[in-house]
Design a protein around this nucleic acid. Structure first.
Lengths: 135, 135
DNA sequence: TTCTAGTTTATAATTATTCTAAAGTGAAAA
DNA sequence: TTTTCACTTTAGAATAATTATAAACTAGAA
């Protein structure tokens, strides 16, 4: 994803492309593979990479803005960690609690044959499958 | 579940049946239906029900001891809430983010037809399905 | 009854996240 | 191009959930 695309991506979702947002967006979206991170890990990586320090609150703000805009997926797993995922397509996860690592599973690799009806008055928003791993 | 069974349940899992543990265990396990709670909600309910106040730290300790002993199931959902579930059999959940409510789904009500292999050197511990609800 | 490891307790500490309000800045309009 | 202002960023305070600490308590073995 080129810089111009990053700018479009931000603008088209109503986000003013500030210096900080562009820097974070480039870091997150200019890569081949999907990327899983927590705000804390992202903060560390950005601090290491860049000379200009972005405030932690800004990283929180930005990550949530990206999530609301649909550019990031939020994944909640055991251990009170909130992960974000640059893969926003419908998919599932392996979770390795030994390493606290989250691994994508393509939506096509899990087929659910039978599913219960939603309770009265409710609809199904989405189905998330977690496959917890052990050694 | 009668009082004698509560005592056995505690003793057989190596937990000394203290006044506090017995009171919490009776509250949790002497009921027909499965019960979902957070430490906070449990604390409120116990405070209301009983005259003797149990320290919040004790409720944390006890709930975790019960979980380790396999008497409670921990379920982590969106919003940084940690729920516990008196249903320790293999099962799944609806999650209603409007009401922050967790609803059990019997393991037999979801059939997964296709599942990916675990990454190299890892095994599948368990599979958790979350069906997120909307109105 | 005595003794001790296990337990409870109040409180402090920690961790993750959100709030606040002051200073800074994109970009539309003049 | 300059001005203007709503949107952003920022440091630090506040909040919330949980864990750690260390002193007092207690179940149950001896």
């Amino acid at each position: 994803m080129k810089k111009i695309d990053i700018l479009n991506k931000l603008r088209s979702s109503g986000l003013r492309p500030t210096k900080q947002r562009v820097e974070i967006a480039k870091f997150l979206f200019e890569r081949e593979k999907t990327f899983h991170f927590t705000v804390e890990s992202l903060n560390k990586l950005l601090t290491k990479k860049s000379t200009s320090k972005i405030a932690l609150a800004t990283i929180y703000n930005t990550v949530h803005a990206f999530k609301t805009a649909g550019h990031l997926n939020e994944v909640e797993v055991r251990g009170n960690k909130t992960y974000f995922d640059t893969n926003v397509s419908n998919h599932h996860h392996f979770y390795d609690s030994e390493t606290s690592e989250l691994i994508d599973i393509d939506a096509n690799d899990i087929i659910i044959q039978k599913i219960p009806k939603a309770p009265n008055g409710k609809k199904i928003k989405n189905v998330e499958v977690f496959i917890n791993l052990k050694n």
